[in-house]
Design a protein around this nucleic acid. Sequence first.
DNA 1: ATTGACCTTGCAACCGGTTGCAAATATAAT
DNA 2: ATTATATTTGCAACCGGTTGCAAGGTCAAT
Lengths: 342, 342
Amino acid sequence: MATIRDVAKKANVHSSTVSRVFSGNLSISEATRERVFAAAKELGFWPNAIARSLSTQRTNTIGIVIPHIFEGFFNDSFFPQLMRGMLEASYKKGFRLIVGGCENYEDEIDQIKQIMASSQADGIIVMSSRLDVDTVGELQNHNTPFVLIGHPPSGENQGIAWVDADNQKATQEAVQYLIDLGHKKIAFVGGDPENLTSQEREKSFNTTLDLAGIPRDPNLVHHGFFDESGGFNSVARMLKLGENSPTAFYAANDLMAVGIIRALKKNNIRVPEDISVIGTNNAPISEYAQPAISTVDVPYAKMAGKAVEMLIEKIEQGEMSQTNFTLECSLVLRDSTAEFQN
Amino acid sequence: MATIRDVAKKANVHSSTVSRVFSGNLSISEATRERVFAAAKELGFWPNAIARSLSTQRTNTIGIVIPHIFEGFFNDSFFPQLMRGMLEASYKKGFRLIVGGCENYEDEIDQIKQIMASSQADGIIVMSSRLDVDTVGELQNHNTPFVLIGHPPSGENQGIAWVDADNQKATQEAVQYLIDLGHKKIAFVGGDPENLTSQEREKSFNTTLDLAGIPRDPNLVHHGFFDESGGFNSVARMLKLGENSPTAFYAANDLMAVGIIRALKKNNIRVPEDISVIGTNNAPISEYAQPAISTVDVPYAKMAGKAVEMLIEKIEQGEMSQTNFTLECSLVLRDSTAEFQN
DNA sequence: ATTGACCTTGCAACCGGTTGCAAATATAAT
DNA sequence: ATTATATTTGCAACCGGTTGCAAGGTCAAT
């Protein structure tokens, strides 16, 4: 590859002039500019991004770490929508994404730290929904800005930037909707109980019941994998509860809702006539499943886009005009929910 | 951030010694190594990846360009599986992905060239399924290795590395399966006709009919968007054909198959009793749609992983032991296909 | 004590850009 | 023509690592 000095020699100028031409510096005469471009074209020159990054201390890159080990992650809409939002927002600003895999939670944090420490990205999106205060503190010790997708852990949250969906409200709406349909025995099928989003939803689930004067029943709470089997498995246990078994399910994602529906069908229980099911995420499956699944649309693409915009603002302006955003979800009513028939 | 020279000063050694310690160079005494590590730890030092890349001419990064503009892309399984495969394979080798967006075909090529020219990645996965010979030629002029996901365009293919699914065989199996069920009027619902994979499948579709002695009917061929509406729209036209209307559909992806089924249902046509439908990609929806859709499983994750492995082999060893791979697909039979009832 | 082999470390150039400062040149004002 | 000012360009240091070569040191063999 030709370097800036090769071009300089050919165009009879100093390498700094070539640099200025290619970085759009104004103080270059038209004649010189043309001469440099001609030489560059002839040599097939394009500025080396790495060298430029070393010099400017800017990579024009946003980092993200993905748990590639977890297949379910790629079957839900969460990951693809997140990528879409990040890509779109970074593209618009001339940034690219640097994405690394990871095998588990500790590894995720390790990888993030490594990207930060090695200055591979100008900013990082942190998706982990299992962060604790100490870990966030460690991340803050680096000087790479980051934005959380999701809430920061409770505790010292000073200066932590984040974007989250209004899970509390979304869950409340979904559960209230079931309550309004006459349901009283409502099951909560969550994912990883250490997942902060899961926790937030469970909490909101509980308070919504409380407010409606419906007693909480620990038997109606289940935690499983965030996939179809997770939903499926929750049903067997619940159905054993006899007259205390649920008449409606609220699931942490749509794949779980699908699993629940499959399990119910297998037990000759009709959805929604006998039991209502409501999912989360508005994944493509939810629309095409039978029955089409009522669900909560979570604006992942928008959240991720917002997070990237915040990072780039910080990178380019030195600070964010606003450090956190809560985006609204919306209830998508389809055919898996119906009035409680007694 | 502390640099290698800061550490050197603190540990009373030369910066090159620090460099050697951190790059795993053997010729460092245990005592020095420990002294350097101690100093590094104290200063919170981690080698700067950019500086290292500039020096070693290696980024440990694989590039890929994604058309973020096309939403359907993120609802299908193609993209997520591709990412999964790439992430897993690169993670294993200590590589990360650098991914950029693009808005259309020309832009895709531009972005790829830019990544190559600016040395931002050691290798690139090229997904474009609309490549022409000239474009591939241009890519070959750069010295960044690349691997195509999909076949190279016909023409001069010397030295082009690629990984593809055996679309010809997969399509043949799917169509033959329909034929074996007694279907004779089989519709082909493809995506972008400029898409090489689409073309390959259509060709295989045709020759399979030919071999079975079934006359081709141009009315039974439709090209639409790779999404649900693409499938949906194909049906209206086909049903107007009266007694020449199809008794089976072969769709280029599962979202299209879903659209086809929806359109058929809307016309009170039963699937599979009245009309059979077979999709492609084995996306999550295909499993959970009603009826569950028979489809062709295409091993995208495996293909992408293979492509990354090939690239890394080239990057690390200087050449690929094998420059192309064709991976097998498999027919996944579910409930959207049945014997032709006359 | 001397020689040679080997191990460890330092020196300095290099990777390919950027940028503050000063010099050179062009343009305007007097 | 002269001086002041603005524009364009060159110089050289710098970003933070790596690495070939040589020097210094250690140790064993002679």
